[in-house]
Design a protein around this nucleic acid. Structure first.
Lengths: 341, 341
DNA sequence: GCCTATTTGACATACGTATGTCAAGTCAAC
DNA sequence: GTTGACTTGACATACGTATGTCAAATAGGC
């Protein structure tokens, strides 16, 4: 039988009230008695029944997700996953709200974070680039007693409670290894594209790619990263030029958002080149491209897992409960047409 | 505010007792009143608070896992994952026991299944091949009110409540696609090995492989499957012969257990051939082989996910709660050195 | 040893559900 | 209209925890 507070009281030779005061820090307790309670807790291996406690407290968890706004289809899939997870039983007692900010504007991000009702808030998951202002806002939220996790892109200098996402350096390595193996005996160059290198993600992926290519696939050269800042004309021109200027072009690695334009351009300009294509993130566009055979493989972080993990981690933090790391580890998945889900 | 049984009673104009009788089928209730309760439930969208109910009932869940015994390292990883999941908070209120049977002996399996204390049992997850006897035993367990899920290998003709595992046909397709893409412009043959084709898994994977090769990679031919029945000498000889007899050999696909022997043999006999190797299941052996570069990619079903999923599904069945399909979907993962976890 | 401030314990109530007892109510058949 | 069988409602208790009230116990300062 699991010990209860009653057992603790008996073991410690104090009353239930005192046990409660120690466990919940509700009033001054003489050090001697506090120590006896703590000893009894350790001795009996007491762990609070969070469900019963939540029942008694009528506990609700208030969580907010802050996502970048704009026409980024990956973010849409994340948002959908959050809503689905919030609806499912995974999140009893949790109210979750999704807010959007202009991620390119640190000021706007901070404004959004400052506008949170810290009295109500239990935790927030944020998916924005790190800036000093964001770092301060995170600290502010934490000082108010709420928990903060970063989602998808890490905020290494902010004191977040957890990071929910993949290691982008490894993701870049994985892409590089895939490209290298797909091009096994071939040599040539790889076109690397992204919407913007401002996002830390792309930078890290690029590092990972370069590292693995130079170490394991010296016959392959990655061309300088092309950024096309939501400009589909630019990607068309760039791709066209790259194909004509680089007859040795063998592959394309699309590192981040903006797959749509890249894939459109690819269809127009590279029909006969038979390029190997690796992209990131499973969206309706990349999904279709996989099915059509326009993309060979996609590097994926499962958005359902991201959403559920963020919620579980925030809850665990609120409950001061251990995080089940094995479950919260977001894996770098490789998806091809055959294991598409 | 979520409606409670009190709200239902008020809405239906009956007493709490009657609501309880209807909700838990505890006694005869006049049809008219039963209908009023059910209507109120629907109208208010009442859902039972399982945590509160479990608290009141002092509910415990009794689950048993039945795994194949013998020196199968994949099974060891599954068992470890089950124990880890059972220890973690994921499984409050659950007692889980792991039993081993000789999976090659249908009689032994049935004996094990019959020996379960059906009075205590709430659910069982079984990882054994399907036979008519097993099918009957499953039916027997179910008729006693316990739930049954199949783990890793499906029992399509038994009336299990759920299957926790991957689609092995798709897994074979995935392996085929990987091999095809790794060998992009090459032609030649692929050696296919397994410990035993008795297991349905291997058969399905082989079908998937053949399907994808003939459709998408006609230049590649899969040789007849070699079974080596726990005989490491046989795999050595076979591999040696295959390499000498098939100069066009390009790759090896190890479909199931027995990777150890296969990899040993590979190191001895195929040093200079530079074969592409795809195997199944992440064990200490395949993990090391990945790191050493002896294997190019591994098709994985995450054992932690398998274990947690089995437990969640069994609970959901016991609670008559909806299964969160998106979460329970076991993915066919592709693991290379770079995204190894 | 007394006074006061602090600490403690006993008790009650609650959360949402389960389950039992027993008296009161309702119904159908005679 | 009465009987007996069935159905219902009121109430009590419980699960493990939280939280409040108030009187009693205790410690420390004198």
């Amino acid at each position: 039988m699991k010990p209860t507070v009653h057992d603790i009281a008996r073991e410690a030779g104090v009353s239930l009230s005192t046990v409660d005061r120690v466990l919940n820090g509700r009033a001054d307790v003489r050090p001697k008695n506090a120590e006896r309670v703590k000893t009894a807790v350790r001795k009996l291996g007491y762990v609070r029944d969070t469900n019963a406690a939540n029942l008694a407290k009528k506990r609700r968890y208030n969580f907010v997700f802050v996502l970048p706004e704009g026409p980024i289809s990956f973010v849409d899939t994340v948002a959908a996953a959050i809503r689905e997870a919030a609806d499912a039983q995974v999140t009893d007692r949790a109210d979750v709200e999704v807010r959007y900010v202009n991620a390119a504007d640190p000021h706007a991000i901070v404004k959004c974070l400052k506008s949170l009702d810290l009295g109500q808030l239990d935790g927030v998951a944020i998916m924005v680039p790190e800036t000093p202002q964001v770092r301060d806002a995170v600290a502010h939220i934490k000082s108010a007693g709420a928990y903060v996790v970063s989602l998808v892109s890490d905020l290494p200098n902010s004191r977040c409670d957890h990071f929910i996402g993949i290691d982008n350096f490894s993701a870049g390595q994985t892409a590089g290894a895939l490209l290298g193996k797909f091009l096994r005996k071939e040599t040539g160059s790889i076109l690397v594209t992204t919407n913007s290198m401002v996002a830390r993600d792309s930078i890290e992926r690029r590092y990972g790619l370069d590292e693995i290519l130079s170490r394991d696939f010296p016959g392959l050269t990655a061309l300088p990263t092309i950024e096309f800042h939501d400009d589909s004309k630019r990607i068309h021109e760039t791709l066209e030029r790259a194909i004509s200027e680089h007859p040795e072009l063998r592959a394309i690695y699309s590192m981040g958002s903006g797959n749509t334009a890249m894939l459109d351009a690819l269809r127009d300009h590279a029909g006969e080149k038979n390029l190997v294509v690796v992209a990131h993130d499973l969206t309706s566009v990349t999904r279709q491209a996989l099915v059509d055979g326009d993309v060979d493989a996609i590097i994926v972080q499962n958005v359902g897992h991201l959403a559920r993990s963020a919620l579980r981690v925030l809850r665990a933090k609120c409950d001061d409960t251990e995080i089940y790391e094995a479950q919260e580890q977001i894996r770098i998945e490789i998806v091809m047409r055959e294991n598409l889900y």
